[in-house]
Computed example of a mutant assay.
Amino acid sequence: MTRALIALLSGTLFGAGLAYSGMSDPARVQAFLDLLGQWDPTLAFVMGGAMLPMAVAWVIRSRLSSPLAAPTFDLPGTTKLDRPLAIGAILFGMGWGIAGLCPGPALADLAIAPGDVAPFVVAMFVGMAAQRFVPFLSQKPKQAGPK
């Protein structure tokens, strides 16, 4: 119950931050990506502003033996840049640039303009399901064994 409450509060705070900063507005995100037109630097300030609390969180995490509401930290198992990660990042960036939305703002926009964002959210969940259930999309890279 505690973990669910923390997740709900964190998601609510994140969504409120997206709405307050204007990052749930696809036009603002697309204007940030329009370097040769009517460029809007707001997203750069939002990203920069997020770095300070994240740096503080990493310092605090390094001093904890476990999280406050979970038995262990859930950190990525690897830091390797491989083909699936690069392809996923490229597809994410292309979709973000075309639609002006990524998962967080899209879900936040369901409360603001559900009719406008619902097709994106449906497509997002279809893509997530495809990655999970279509074998060639969810293949893990083979680990190199000893020779």
Rank of each mutant, 00 (worst) to 15 (best):
T2D: 15
G11E: 10
Y20M: 07
G22F: 06
R28N: 12
V29C: 08
V29L: 15
Q30W: 01
A31Q: 13
L33P: 02
D34H: 14
L35Y: 00
L35S: 10
L36M: 10
Q38W: 04
W39L: 10
D40M: 09
M47N: 04
G48C: 05
G48D: 02
M51T: 13
P53G: 07
V59L: 14
I60W: 15
I60E: 15
I60P: 05
S62T: 10
R63E: 11
L64Y: 10
S66V: 08
P67W: 13
A70P: 00
L75S: 12
P76K: 10
G77T: 04
K80T: 08
K80Q: 13
L81P: 00
D82L: 00
D82Y: 05
D82K: 02
F92M: 03
M94A: 13
G95L: 11
G97Y: 00
G97C: 08
A99Y: 00
A106N: 04
A108H: 04
A111I: 05
I112A: 10
P119L: 13
P119N: 11
V122D: 03
F125M: 13
V126I: 15
A130R: 02
R132F: 01
V134Q: 04
V134T: 04
K140I: 07
P141H: 02
A144Q: 12
G145P: 03
G145N: 11
P146D: 15
K147Q: 12
K147E: 11
